[in-house]
């Protein structure tokens, strides 16, 4: 017998849903508007604001920069994060307990503070190039996510499996690649995606580190908004949303989203 759901509960749920999805609908609507200013509901229908993104040189360049920064810093974070998570899981008993907290610390520091401190040190103190500063900043930003996700998948890994492989004649380093990595594959992919999305969408750190000539997409979006109030802003937002949703959809299809919540 199906349980009868109270109508008020349905109404409440609908309101929450509207609250969550409403703004997104407005953005999508505005992006499709045929007007030269942001408006909702859309008047007319046009894809020209999407086309506009690629016609404005600054957007073209910053999209490329954003992708480059995201890919490179994600790889660097994985390169650091996988061995770090491995060491912390494998030698949990021998290592001090605060170590794993240390690696998650950047999440607890307000990103603005992190961004400012990076600006002061990387850009002013060491005169680091903007692109390099961005890579370093984003790597620090996403490393905690990478470590958290990979540590979670390593937590259920039985290290005697590794010992079994070694006892059968597989050298330790080879065992790491042939036995350990395939078994935390889903964790690595999840970490990659989470890190990539976080990097692409980041404003608070990038705003300190971008400078003349080099900017990321979200920062360019802010700059654009200060001068123009046309639907390009909405269409860029939609593009970022679509990118995020597409990546999530791929994860959902291949691995299931539940493991992201682990």
């Amino acid at each position: 017998m199906p349980t009868k759901i109270h109508p008020a509960l349905i109404g409440f749920t609908a309101l929450v849903f509207l609250f969550l999805v409403g703004p997104l609908v407005i953005v999508v609507g505005a992006a499709l508007s045929d007007t030269t200013f942001l408006t909702f509901p859309p008047q007319g229908f046009s894809l020209r604001w999407f086309q506009n993104i690629f016609e404005i040189d600054a957007f073209r360049r910053t999209i490329l920069t954003s992708l480059q920064v995201a890919v490179i810093s994600t790889f660097v974070a994985l390169l650091i994060g996988i061995p770090a998570s491995y060491a912390m899981s494998r030698y949990r008993i021998q290592l001090p307990g605060w170590l794993s907290t240390l690696f998650v610390l950047p999440v607890l520091v307000p990103e603005l503070v992190l961004g400012f401190s990076l600006l002061k040190n990387l850009a002013f103190q060491f005169n680091a190039p903007i692109f390099l500063s961005l890579i370093i900043g984003h790597t620090i930003l996403i490393l905690p996510y990478v470590i958290r996700v990979i540590s979670a998948s390593l937590a259920s890994f039985d290290f005697s499996i590794e010992e079994a492989a070694i006892s059968l004649g597989s050298p330790p380093l080879k065992t790491f690649f042939t036995v350990l990595l395939p078994n935390v594959r889903s964790g690595v992919i999840a970490a990659f995606i989470l890190a990539f999305i976080t990097s692409v969408n980041d404003v608070s750190i990038s705003i300190f580190l971008t400078g003349p000539g080099i900017s990321t997409l979200p920062i360019q979006l802010l700059a654009h908004m200060e001068q123009f109030f046309d639907p390009t802003v909405a269409s860029v937002s939609v593009m970022l949303m679509v990118l995020t949703v597409a990546v999530m959809a791929i994860v959902e299809r291949t691995l299931g989203l539940t493991f992201l919540a682990k």
Binding site: S160, I161, E163, A164, N183
Partner: peptide, 8 residues
Amino acid sequence: FQNYALFP
């Protein structure tokens, strides 16, 4: 091994 330690 006690917990088999098979390669999953």
